[in-house]
Design a binder for these strands. Structure first.
Lengths: 353, 353
DNA sequence: AACGTTGATGTAAGCGCATACATCGTTTTC
DNA sequence: GAAAACGATGTATGCGCTTACATCAACGTT
């Protein structure tokens, strides 16, 4: 047993003694519970302040069963998108007095493992925010079973609260923009036609692609399957996909990259191949990454940080309200930002040599 | 008191009963302590496995006083640099079985507040990693006083372990590269001559600038104070600084931006002003940001993620060894990566019209 | 005036673990 | 072969809180 030195931190007993009340009253007063006389509460607050007392979180957690901690699980901590989300979550946690622990699970295998082994998370967090996973109800149920609330960011829907955008609309906006510039041959980069390549945004690529397809259909056009290329959702993936696309003979199609980071990859690839943007190649992305303005990338913008903030609020409210109430789904706005990587299509004769 | 349902999580008593030993033996066996017979340990492990038992962290923390949690404090969670660092820390925490909690403190005011109110962190984390703050020994002492170990990333030195690079060398490499291309007029962007502008990298800008100055001196050149411009360490800051610089009459000097993000700002600014890179303007940055390769930025590269990993290892080792042993300072390598934003200086007559 | 109410406070029993100390059988030492 | 040392294990206390329940004074109610 660790011996306590004279200068050790004050306990609730010290505060009780100083304020001349019992520990129960101190506990109630400090946590703002009712049935404490105003004068008593003041005395307790003052005693706590003087002693610089702060309840030991470990003891609080053990006794109450609540950790006042939430966890965020992301596929890749170093990615721009995820960093923004985590920043949004952290801001809310800080103001709400919750601790935030971060975890990465690089693939759905890891995710399954996390759910299988949910007991390890037990009593460690009150709730979990999953970012960009294809979370199934069955996963979530496993967490609910051990008393962990779950909110998901980027998922379409399910029996748990989610935060996201209208990804179909994203595809529409991007496609409409390109159509408006006269582009009829459109390539979609990052479509994740190969499910094995998609440890991350799951439904998102499909929905964005669907938005594109339907918009083209409205214009009486069809998406050329040969122009739908998959690839990792980050810069490398975009570059690789674009290279295979741009090395084909003939004029390149306009490129709708399903994320800005992929768009950067396309941009990089074009630069390497000596293809001028936007004169020879139009590129549009999604996100409004901080670097988008640097290279003048046209993009469908979303406020990623606010996704994180909204998810954190949703989760914390749900924890406070004892997990009752309807499942909320919040959907954030998106908007087109026209910059310099998209331009009017060259004449039809050039377009189809 | 929350009533326990029949299906509640197993406790150490359940494991003890199942294995036919006492709780003390279970505790020892599960934590790998000595003085447990092999056969007993096996029996305990098996019982724990069957019951899917995991020690309640809250109880463990309360009883042992160790949280197996470390915290990382960054100025800006959404910045590229910090996201990389956090990713590196998280990776180590995950393998070492530590939880990682993230906190942001946007300025030194916040940092002071954190230290003043260190009691709030008390019993919440075993150790803290500070990223890019001008941490003073006095701050650190406050944390040590309440039993929190501290490691700093990016700081030069002090009475606590640090992880960083040779920032003077960074300045030398960049400057030597520009000199080698024939540039003699060099601008340093992000030098933080105004201390009020520097909530972040503290000594870092000064050292990089000093490396530049001394290298110029070796070549018999002096840095023109008019070409040293300060600004925020991110894209906006670089852009603003660069605009003021590039709008001056005459050919622009070669730009040494003290971070890649600032270099991107300079690049963006040049693009906006119609100044061609690298024909009319050479730019070199520091970091090797993932976007550096996209625009072909020449830069002095550092492996930021490994900074985080090293700091986490340092901290966890220190915690394990009961905070004894010498203070370690780890210094990581940097290297020049030549890409496309730097080019040979135009002839002297053009350089000085 | 006897009695149920209500609000303020205290008492004490856990929460689930770690660990000091006690115990006991076994081995080593002289 | 008795004493001492050691390894394996058990007993029981405490870590610092929360909270069910008890208590009690000050009310309002018939």
């Amino acid at each position: 047993m660790p011996q306590r030195s004279h200068s050790d931190r004050p306990t609730i007993d010290d505060v009780a003694a100083a304020a001349g009340v019992s520990v129960a009253t101190v506990s109630r007063a400090l946590r703002g519970l009712p049935n404490v006389a105003q004068s008593t509460r003041q005395a307790v607050l003052e005693a706590a302040r003087q002693l610089n007392y702060h309840a030991d979180p470990a003891a609080t957690r053990l006794a109450s069963g609540r950790t006042r901690t939430i966890g965020v699980v992301v596929p890749l901590l170093s990615g721009w998108y995820f960093a923004q989300v985590v920043a949004g979550i952290e801001a809310i946690c800080a103001t709400e007095g919750h601790d935030l622990i971060v975890m990465s699970a690089a693939s759905h295998d890891h995710l399954d493992q996390l759910a299988d082994d949910s007991a390890r998370l037990r009593r460690r967090v009150d709730g979990l925010i999953f970012v960009d996973y294809a979370l199934a109800d069955s996963h979530v149920d496993r967490f609910h079973a051990i008393g962990i609330e779950v909110v998901s960011i980027g998922a379409a829907s399910g029996g748990f609260p989610t935060v996201g955008i209208d990804d179909r609309m994203v595809g529409e906006l991007a496609t409409r923009h390109l159509l408006g510039l006269g582009h009829t041959r459109i390539s979609v980069v990052g479509a994740m036609t190969d499910d094995r390549l998609d440890p991350f945004r799951f439904a998102v690529p499909r929905l964005r692609l669907a938005g594109c397809t339907s918009t083209l259909a409205e214009a009486g056009l069809a998406l050329d399957p040969a122009l739908v290329v998959s690839g990792g959702f980050i810069v490398d993936g975009g570059a690789a996909a674009a290279t295979s696309l741009l090395e084909r003979s003939g004029p390149p199609p306009a490129v709708f990259a399903l994320s800005d980071e992929m768009a950067f990859g396309v941009y990089q690839s074009a630069r390497a191949l000596g293809i001028r943007v936007p004169d020879e190649l139009s590129i549009i992305g999604v996100d409004d990454h901080e670097m988008a303005s640097v290279i003048g990338l046209t993009t469908v913008a979303q406020d990623v940080t606010s996704h994180g903030a909204a998810a954190a609020r949703l989760l914390i409210n749900r924890l406070a309200s004892d997990e009752t109430g309807p499942i909320e789904h919040v959907c954030h706005e998106v908007r087109l930002i026209t910059r310099d990587t998209t331009a009017t299509a060259r004449s039809a004769s050039e377009e189809n040599p």
